[in-house]
Nucleic acid binder design. Structure first.
Length: 731
DNA sequence: GGAGTCTTGTTTTTT
DNA sequence: ACAAGACTCC
């Protein structure tokens, strides 16, 4: 019995044992893609005696990289040296720090995320005295990222895009180059740089190129259909010497073109690697045949694809169903009722069910309905944790400690929590730094002794400088402890409690706890825990990497977030013309095909049951819309000719269930402002965050939102809306 | 520095 | 509809 080869089917085996040269693996949904990659790694190490560190596997997410590591380890056994399994970006970081001597950065460079990028761009525009109204910072940031993803410099990019008027072209080049200069001054790279700079370096420097090309005898790229030009070029350059590159992907699941991914990379792979062999993995181990058939009906309408057809041994199964709802609430209620029914009749747990949206905004109604009906759910979302204010603040402290040149971090926290360093003082400091051509921290040390600022400002700055020095002393401690010290020394928590309302404060504190937990985990897992690595790791981490689906809660997510996951029961909701396919793809056939792929990704997540829902009317972004069913439903033969639109199960009146399934959890929340309702009556004693203790004199319920007249000990009588005031009952 | 008001932009967001 | 940011005023 061979644990590496025996569990594989014929084509998987071909891919795993492929000797040398480029190989393109078309791995359909659920065809055992990860298994193939990990078994190949194990095969190379065990059978071909390849040194693990000479194998490079690149993925897109930390989650995927982690999963591969784990599964490969199981097969090979945890020997000391591991194969290199990384995300593209973390590989980029590794290469950059290894070759830092060839670059104009210090080894402890900071990585700027999208938000940092926007902050820098705002500054840039201001400095160039360009009217900010002429640019949307988001768009601009997107353009710069997209230029970097395509390995184009400012001029090339603006020519290609042809902004039509040369003034804008000029300005764009100006903005771009000042932005680049600022990154350098801050000793920082942005996400785009993590791919582009390694490519440029490999192209320009023969010795470096040789070193890295020599190193990797075998390279594997996961989700190849989503590579952008920079990623493609990086993979190509690295594999140039040994030419052992195996790319695995599925053109039908290419859904990130708007992020620069180029489906041609996989479709035209043989053009770039003429000697490439191709293998197709078409046996599916996930879904039933009816689901696969449905998915195929839809995806086969695409023109830009490689024909392949998934099949499974699971020939029988439930037919997918459609439900046309009257409105968005009806849609959510249908989903909820169906889940209840499945739970009761089929013993299916809500945790095995998932609801997929096209846009995040769709989740709202579902959250409302599920909360009201006590059905537990988790919103799996990718925006959140690392973008939250308190997390960004704490990270800024860490970034500054790791890289004192990071003025961006310094600006963020210099007066947070507030410590009397106002705008005036701040700009004074940074103007001085610019004049002297020194970093912000250095300027800080010097300006206190100059006569450029008032004594009060100098005092405040001096205090901050001392704080900084004190924190500096901790930089060799484990990151958790650094965070702890930062919290203590800055009084961060106290400020939150004092300044924010109770619910926001609570949520912020939970987030801080979560960050500490991440730091503690890092401390335990890393061989050599240190601040710089921790900051790097955490900037490259996203919510999607850490969030887990939940046992007893229905999973809500966008179709993009669903890629790579699978569920027993899938609800595709909002299957309407204009939503899926999204209206922005209306006149663009290529984008329309991507919408179809998105639909395909959704369908193929389902193991056993698939429900497609649409709604004749819905409210989105504040206006009512009337909708037609998605053309994809027609393509799937799910719309009968003139049959009534609704199908089983019948819509039933929602009964409030007594059973509380462990309460509902909403994990990916921003701090919520809405307090839970409390009941107040005359005579109750209450506490208010600002006004302190008081007694309720009377309650006026004539309004839609009841008003309480409260006599506060220190502030006298106040009329407060119960629903909005942060009131706590006390005894 | 904070509170209140106005403006803007809402597809998806692997890093 | 609704939230985040910018802007304004004390």
């Amino acid at each position: 019995m061979d644990p590496i080869l025996d569990p594989l089917n014929k084509n998987q085996k071909i891919a795993v044992t492929h000797e040398s040269g480029p190989l393109l693996v078309f791995a359909g949904a659920g065809s055992g893609k990860t298994r193939t990659i990990t078994h190949r790694i194990a095969y190379l190490i065990r059978e071909k005696n390849i040194q693990p560190y000479r194998i490079l596997g690149v993925t897109f997410t930390n989650k995927a990289a982690g999963e591969m590591k784990e599964r490969a380890n199981k097969l090979v056994g945890e020997s000391g040296i591991q194969p290199e399994l990384r995300t593209f970006h973390s590989f980029g970081v590794r290469l950059l720090s290894g070759e830092i001597e060839h670059l104009d950065r210090e080894k402890n460079f900071t990585i700027y995320d999208d938000i940092d990028q926007r902050v820098i761009l705002k500054e840039t525009i201001k400095e160039l005295m360009i009217d900010p109204d002429r640019y949307n910072v988001r768009t601009l940031a997107g353009q710069i990222s997209s230029a970097k993803d395509s390995l184009l410099d400012a001029t090339q990019y603006s020519q290609k895009k042809s902004f039509k008027n040369s003034q804008k072209d000029n300005e764009f080049v100006q903005i771009y180059s000042l932005y680049e200069k600022k990154l350098k001054e801050n000793n920082a790279y942005d996400f785009g740089d993590l791919l582009m700079v390694p490519v440029k370096l490999l192209q320009a420097n023969q010795a470096v190129r040789k070193r890295w090309q020599e190193r990797y005898q075998h390279i594997m790229v996961d989700e190849f259909q989503d590579t952008n030009p920079a990623q493609f070029e990086l993979a190509r350059l690295l594999s140039e010497k040994h030419r052992n590159i195996v790319v695995v992907g599925d053109d039908d699941q290419s859904i990130y073109s708007w992020r620069g991914a180029d489906i041609s990379n996989i479709l035209n792979f043989e053009e770039y690697f003429p000697e490439a062999k191709t293998v197709r993995l078409e046996q599916n181990y996930r879904s039933t045949q009816p689901i696969l058939d449905l998915a195929h009906k839809v995806i086969s309408k695409n023109t830009r694809r490689q024909e392949k057809q998934l099949w499974t041994q699971q020939k029988t199964g439930k037919q997918p169903e459609v439900y046309g709802a009257r409105n968005d609430y009806g849609e959510a209620e249908f989903v909820l009722n169906t889940i209840r029914l499945l739970e009761k009749m089929q013993n299916i747990s809500p945790g095995d069910c998932a609801v997929f949206f096209r846009v995040n905004a769709q989740s709202r109604v579902f959250e409302e309905v599920f909360t009201r009906e006590n059905m537990p759910y988790v919103l799996i979302s990718s925006v959140g944790f690392y973008e939250r204010k308190e997390i960004k603040d704490l990270l800024a402290y860490l970034k500054l400690l790791a890289n004192p040149s990071d003025n961006n971090a310094l600006k963020r926290i210099i007066n947070r929590p507030t410590r009397g360093i106002g705008q005036k003082t701040e700009s004074c400091l940074f103007e001085y730094a610019a004049e002297q051509e020194i970093g912000g921290i250095e300027a800080l040390a010097k300006i206190v002794d100059s006569d450029l600022i008032s004594s009060r400002a100098a005092g405040a700055l001096n205090n901050f400088y001392n704080l900084y020095l004190k924190l500096r002393e901790t930089i060799n401690q484990p990151p958790v402890e650094i965070i702890e010290t930062v919290l203590q020394q800055t009084g961060y928590i106290e400020t939150i409690v004092e300044k924010e309302d109770r619910y926001t404060a609570e949520s912020r504190m939970e987030n801080i706890e979560e960050l500490k937990r991440v730091a503690a985990d890092y401390g335990e897992e890393s061989a050599n825990p240190n601040l710089i690595d921790f900051v790097e790791e955490i900037t490259l981490l996203t919510d999607l990497d850490t969030q887990e689906t939940e046992q007893s809660a229905v999973n809500f997510m966008t179709l993009h977030a669903a890629k790579g996951l699978e569920f027993d029961v899938v609800f595709m909701v909002g299957m309407e013309e204009g939503l899926l396919p999204h209206r922005n793809s209306e006149f663009d056939p290529e984008r329309r095909e991507e919408e179809r792929r998105l639909c395909y990704v959704g369908f193929t997540r389902a193991r056993e049951r698939l429900y497609c829902c649409w709604s004749r009317s819905r409210r989105l972004y504040g206006n009512h819309q009337q909708n037609l069913p998605s053309p994809f439903l027609k393509e799937a033969d799910l719309l009968g000719n003139n049959k009534p639109i609704s199908s089983t199960p019948k819509r039933e009146k929602i009964r409030s269930s007594k059973k509380l399934l462990g309460g509902f959890k909403r994990r990916s929340t921003r701090p919520t402002k809405k307090p839970p309702k409390i009941e107040l009556n005359a005579g109750d004693r209450v506490k208010h965050p600002k006004f302190g203790q008081g007694t309720v004199k009377r309650v006026d319920r004539q309004n839609s939102s009841p008003i309480a007249l409260i006599e506060f000990k220190k502030f006298g009588e106040k009329r407060l809306a119960i629903a909005y005031a942060e009131l706590d009952k006390i005894n």
